[in-house]
């Protein structure tokens, strides 16, 4: 029982670590690259404008898709690893 408990706690910590990592990327591309850090990216040209504009209109959406699939894939592995999958 105690082992079950610590195993479950370790599973939850692994999930939280993964979530935090993904959310940092999530915030970085949208609030960072597309909004607050756009002036820093102004020097990188992309098709008639700059990289910040691309992140605002396309890049962040593409990153979001990648993040969700990455999270789903990693969590499936973590589920199995801790024996807590279905």
């Amino acid at each position: 029982m105690a082992d079950d408990k610590s195993n479950a706690a370790a599973y939850w910590r692994a999930n939280l670590r993964l979530i935090i990592g993904c959310m940092i990327v999530w915030a970085f591309v949208s609030y960072g690259c597309a909004i607050l850090l756009r002036p820093l990216l102004a020097g990188i040209p992309v098709g008639g404008t700059d990289l910040g504009f691309w992140f605002a209109q396309q890049g962040s959406i593409l990153t979001f898709i990648g993040l969700i699939f990455f999270y789903a894939w990693r969590m499936n592995r973590i589920d199995r690893q801790f024996g807590l999958g279905e």
């Binding site: 949208s30 597309a34 962040s60 979001f64 969700i68």
Partner: peptide
């Protein structure tokens, strides 16, 4: 609108 209405899915 583009980021706000998609980022919620993450």
């Amino acid at each position: 609108f583009l980021m706000g209405w998609t980022g919620g899915y993450v």
